[in-house]
Write a protein that binds this DNA or RNA. Structure first.
Lengths: 236, 236
DNA sequence: CAGTGGTCTAGACCACGAA
DNA sequence: TCGTGGTCTAGACCACTGC
């Protein structure tokens, strides 16, 4: 693990274990440099990482402060593939409805950069949060990048398998959100009524090297859909 | 303007004017260093900024590539207070329903870090996108940080006034999303039916120095609610 | 004006990808 | 193996905050 990542982790853990509240000032750069025995830029890089993650904010001429402050019961919309997942706060399980290899249609191939006739794993799952239906998920995984999937893997966390089992690193994602009314079929899966509100999320996940490996369409149960999104300035 | 910001801008403009598509490789670091006559870290910083913004992605040992690729017609959920606003793609106008100074309730004071009895501007607006109702917005602006607002300012872009008029810099925001059913009142404003789907967003905006200045509750018209969210890995 | 964070540099060395 | 991006350092200097 790189120095700046380790330092970021250490500082984050410190904030957590010491229960530091929003607005609490952290030690000054000089002190952190000495404590971790690294140069200024390394500390800065660690702090930038934490700022990007929404853990702290830095104010020039003043100090480094804890941002913290996520409301309980809200899921991070941006799957926090960071250090410890905030999903640990919840009990999430999956029921696999379908798992097969298909030759996906045009719009899926476009998303995954696949040629005509290429194969992909198709996965249909219902996901539960604390025992309640959270969403129905239709996913396609590029067979070229993810050669093998079975029911066991798919029942658990597919992303965990990809990062830990296959040692692939997830890079970035594009997500498209829409609100609408549930169809008869969706309502059935989610134990709601046809015409009830829904949140639809279409997401394309890419590996570290920019290759798209997963195209997912998720329909969320509106009763369980509470999300938060933290964002920072794009000026720095 | 700082060197790395200027370079980031230049590169972004280059990608745009040359219509570079997703996956196109940019010149290597060495070349960029020479072109802009700066050190490696400055180029790196500029590229990190663009990566964070979702414009490019970098692959170690391979190169720097254009990410681009936002679907048309989708609004950025994360108000892109970056360079040119993607809202320019749309025609957004506002109708002010109410503008007054109030002593906000507990939950608003908590969000804005205000003591009991402190004052805030209360603004209620309907916002239109390309002539259609986009959302109803209920906002509170801390009077301490934003001393003055009038109908003209509020009819236009309040954030533009804050950054350009008051020369304040916006730092970060926390947003909480929920899907639900429209109340009678909301449906009236949005020209929809009571019970129709809605997306509710509660957002707290902070200045550069960490002080919260705006608490907004927005109810979106589900027919116009198409959003995208780009995200990157929190590992670096 | 002292304290604190931010920018920028030059250069050494490391890690990953593709051929 | 070589090209390419990433990390890390030491240090000079800059810019903002708050007393």
């Amino acid at each position: 693990m790189l120095k700046y990542q380790q330092i970021a982790l250490d500082i984050e853990r410190m904030i957590e274990t010491e229960q530091l509240k929003r607005g609490v000032k952290l030690p000054v750069l000089e002190a952190l440099m000495k404590e971790f025995e690294v140069s200024k830029s390394t500390i800065t890089k660690a702090l930038d990482l934490l700022e990007k993650k929404g853990v702290i904010y830095q104010v020039r001429g003043s100090g480094i402060f804890v941002r913290g402050h996520k409301r309980k019961g809200f899921l991070s919309l941006i799957s926090n593939q960071g250090f410890k997942d905030s999903l640990e706060e919840f009990d999430i399980t999956s029921e696999v409805l379908e798992l097969k290899i298909v030759q996906p249609e045009r719009y899926v191939r476009d998303a995954l950069d696949l040629p005509e006739g290429a194969e992909a794993h198709y996965v249909k799952r219902i996901r539960y949060i604390n025992g309640k239906t959270l969403c129905v998920e239709n996913s396609y995984y590029s067979k070229e990048l993810i050669p093998y999937l079975n029911k066991e893997i798919v029942t658990g966390s597919i992303f965990h398998y990809i990062t830990e089992g296959l040692k692939l690193q997830i890079g970035f994602s594009d997500m498209y959100l829409q609100v609408g009314k549930l169809t008869e079929e969706e309502a059935g899966y989610l134990q709601l009524k046809s015409g009830d509100p829904k949140l639809s999320a279409e997401t394309i996940f890419h590996l570290n090297n920019g290759k798209p490996f997963d195209y997912s369409m998720i329909t969320y149960n509106y009763e369980q859909s509470q999300f938060y999104v933290q964002s920072g300035s794009y000026l720095r």
